[in-house]
Design a protein around this nucleic acid. Structure first.
Lengths: 214, 214
DNA sequence: GCTCATCGATACGTCTCCGTACCGATACGC
DNA sequence: GCGTATCGGTACGGAGACGTATCGATGAGC
């Protein structure tokens, strides 16, 4: 409903109903998400988005009925699989690479999630768009990663830590700003995975140090 | 500056400058925090707090200059040490009890932190009050717990997982609503500690299952 | 080349909220 | 018992934002 011209960046539908190209739409979406990150969802105004993209408020309201619908559309359009394609053949190495990959976009996405604040708990459409864009793809990628490790026999299928790995990874991303005032970067995440995730899964392959060697 | 009558609940200073008793003040604070949890920081209005406590907006503005200062005062006054006094003599048991204790208040505090959204990142006073009230006491209690375990020789002082335990505990609290739509309760937290925190620390004392027994 | 839908700009109405001011009533301090 | 400061209620001004309406200009489609 939002963008009917989804068949390509240049080829537009025969009877064009909007002059908004997909590139232009992306500009709107990027602008509103960036303003949410900087000012918080409640403080973002349609006027502000219109001004920063040099379009008119009417143009925005012609495409999207209300501000939450606009933001939800922007969220859905920002859906990207961040660390897909990680498949090193080793679960530990997969998780290490996932940590480094997550560190690269953690700032933007963590800030966005934080800035959405209470809005997504109140608006069903926002919540759904949020999960669809930021949460579900990453969870699915992580679980595929874990499933491959199980299939290779690196971890038992009934290992109790398995179901908590996503919560560990995204939890530390989300809580770091509250605890230490800074976002989790790739290095921090890599150390976290090494120190907690891999040991919890029994994947500590470092022979130099055992946990209970005293 | 906010409440000068801090010498007791009944005994008031000689030259009383405000008719707001500490109990009445607590009513204001409870009301605003509850409204923040329910509606989000931005949507909370001074009118709403005044109405719910049957006081006048003037009364609130006589005591606190602005809304952020009011909320910050409420946060600071809500400072409580949630799981202090846990000292079973065993680090693993301490952590298990901490998990159960955290599960009891996780709903309220997690919702509050979530509902504060972007406000505390923008307002220095809010951020400081937030840390002082919700974050620092818990971190300190956890670290004392860990320090006792180290002193008893249960964990090596340079164990790499030590510094990430607070992030694990509070991270999973904070991220659970996003991942599964519900808050972490005591049972979930207890299972999380058992499945990830204790193994990461090398404290798995369950002899029936080892992580690398295959 | 013409037509018309859409664009950007702007003005407008409505609403909500912040923070202040005023005004009797009440209850504390002396 | 009296004076006075604070309380609760309300009205007010100012600001800002949502969403709508209007209007010339532009450019795509035929």
């Amino acid at each position: 409903m939002t963008s009917q011209a989804a068949d390509g960046p240049e080829t537009v539908a025969a009877t064009r109903r909007s002059k908004i190209t997909p590139e232009r739409e992306r500009e709107f979406f990027d602008a509103v998400l960036e303003q949410i990150r900087e000012c918080g969802y409640e403080s973002v105004t349609m006027e502000g988005v219109a001004a920063s993209t040099r379009c008119s408020k009417s143009t925005l309201y012609r495409q999207w009925k209300t501000k939450p619908q606009f933001v939800a559309a922007a969220l859905r359009a920002s859906r990207r699989v961040r660390f897909a394609g990680i498949d090193t053949g080793s679960l530990a190495e997969d998780l290490r690479q996932a940590a480094r990959a997550a560190g690269d976009w953690s700032g933007k996405d963590t800030r966005l999630l934080q800035a959405l604040g209470h809005a997504w708990t109140a608006d069903k459409e926002l919540a759904e768009a949020l999960r669809e864009a930021l949460v579900n793809p990453e969870i699915a990628a992580l679980q595929e990663m874990l499933a491959r490790g199980v299939a290779r026999g690196e971890v038992r299928a009934d290992h109790p830590a398995l179901e908590y790995i996503p919560a560990m990874m995204f939890g530390v991303l989300r809580v770091r700003p509250v605890l230490s005032g800074q976002y989790a970067d790739a290095d921090y995440l890599a150390r976290f995975v090494e120190a907690t995730v891999l040991p919890a899964l029994g994947l500590t392959q470092d022979p130099g140090r055992r946990s209970r060697d005293d």
